[in-house]
Computed example of a mutant assay.
Amino acid sequence: MTASGEPITVSPVAGRRDLETFIRLPYRLLQDEPCWPPPLLFDVRNRLDRSKNPFFEHGEAEYFLARRGGEVVGRIAAIRNHLHEEVHKEKLGFFGWFDLINDEDVACSLLDTARQWAADRGLEALRGPVSFSLNDECGCLVDGFEHPATIMTPWNPPWYGALIEGAGFTKSKDLYSFALPVMEFGVERIGRIVERIKKREGARLRQFDPKQFSQEVARIEAIYNEAWTANWGFVPMTPAEFRHMAKELKPVLVPELAHFVEIEGRPVGFSLVLPDVNVILRKLKGRLFPFGIFRLLFGLKRVKRIRLMAMGVIREHHMKGLDSVLYLAAFEGARDLGKTFSELGWVLEDNAVMINTIERIGGHRYRTHRLYDAPTVRHGNSKGAH
């Protein structure tokens, strides 16, 4: 879609009113989309609050609004992650919190503004969308629009990708999500294999112990940051970030769906499956109070959808079949709780080992999110004015 003749202005968020406009924009633009789950407003406010989100201990961001004729038509966050620069030794910035009307000029104006912000700080390229890092919601949905977004995954209309590409961005990496009906997982067949693996490796499986919540979270943090070190784009989560995420997820944590695998009493792997709380969020329309809290608390047990959102085995125990031990535990727990649908992911498009494993247990790719890159110096004239 092309723009009207009125000029577009892009300006930083200034003050509480602008911030609230920034927060609420997707609720206006996407309110009629059945696959988009409106996040809780107070949760979004906390994530954007520089004093509350531990990302800002090593990162910075500027929020921008695009206006045409006095109407807000888009938003974007320009992001700098100093920890990413330190780990990967590259001058890379990020963009996220990207929502807008279907308009090429608006997209170019927003993305050019983020590019300039990054260039002013000596960064040479921009990647996104991420909100705020790969450890958060990330990627632009490019396939599987007909499927509802699951917990901690984004959803956007089909034309977002074309607008980003039209602004000069190219594909960086695809992130795959896989669907697997719980009852189609071959528990009995894989169970025999898993028993042999456990015996061979001297492995023991156990559930997450909620009575030792802080200690268990620390164990997951250690495994996660070690297991994922070699992954493309990965930046370790800081202890503060891990504690913050754990606190947010604690209300929806189900011990029967979170597991450790241990060898000689040492945790060497974990899996974390969460009920898809988005099923409930779509009914709350962003508001937890006054009655949404009851829907959330009493509705969780009835949610039939789950997402296996994280799994890791430390590198010295890779390729020993321990991932199969964790898959079996996750699906046995899901089956016993009456869950019917599972999503596994995301998985990097070139992680052949993980993709093959998921496909062997019956999963099929059903959604794809894409990350885009562009140099911060735009070659050619911008279509938008700002």
Rank of each mutant, 00 (worst) to 15 (best):
I223K: 05
M1P: 09
H244W: 15
P39Q: 06
Y27L: 09
L308H: 13
H364E: 12
T150I: 12
R16I: 06
A246H: 06
P38M: 03
V44D: 04
V130W: 10
K250Q: 15
I193M: 13
V353P: 06
E184G: 01
G96V: 08
W159R: 12
A230R: 14
L297A: 10
A14Y: 00
P38Y: 04
F95H: 11
R16K: 12
R75E: 11
P251C: 10
E146G: 07
V182K: 10
R302H: 10
I306C: 14
I8F: 01
L134F: 14
I8K: 04
K247W: 12
V377K: 14
E6G: 06
M183N: 15
R305G: 00
H317D: 03
G70T: 08
H386W: 11
V279S: 04
K383F: 12
G265W: 03
G299L: 01
Y372H: 02
P290R: 00
G96S: 13
N225Q: 04
D323I: 01
K171C: 03
E6L: 14
E90A: 10
G362M: 11
G69N: 09
I355H: 01
A167L: 03
P210N: 03
A385L: 08
P267E: 09
A149G: 13
L371K: 03
G15A: 09
P290E: 05
P26E: 01
Q31W: 01
A66H: 08
W232F: 14
R335L: 13
A330E: 02
A149K: 03
Y366H: 15
L110C: 03
L30Y: 15
F234K: 06
R365G: 02
Y160G: 08
V254M: 12
E146L: 04
I76E: 00
R45A: 15
I197T: 08
F234M: 13
M309D: 12
D143E: 15
E248D: 15
G380T: 05
A119D: 07
R367N: 00
G128E: 13
T357E: 11
N381I: 12
I293L: 14
W117K: 07
G70H: 05
S131N: 15
F55M: 03
E57S: 10
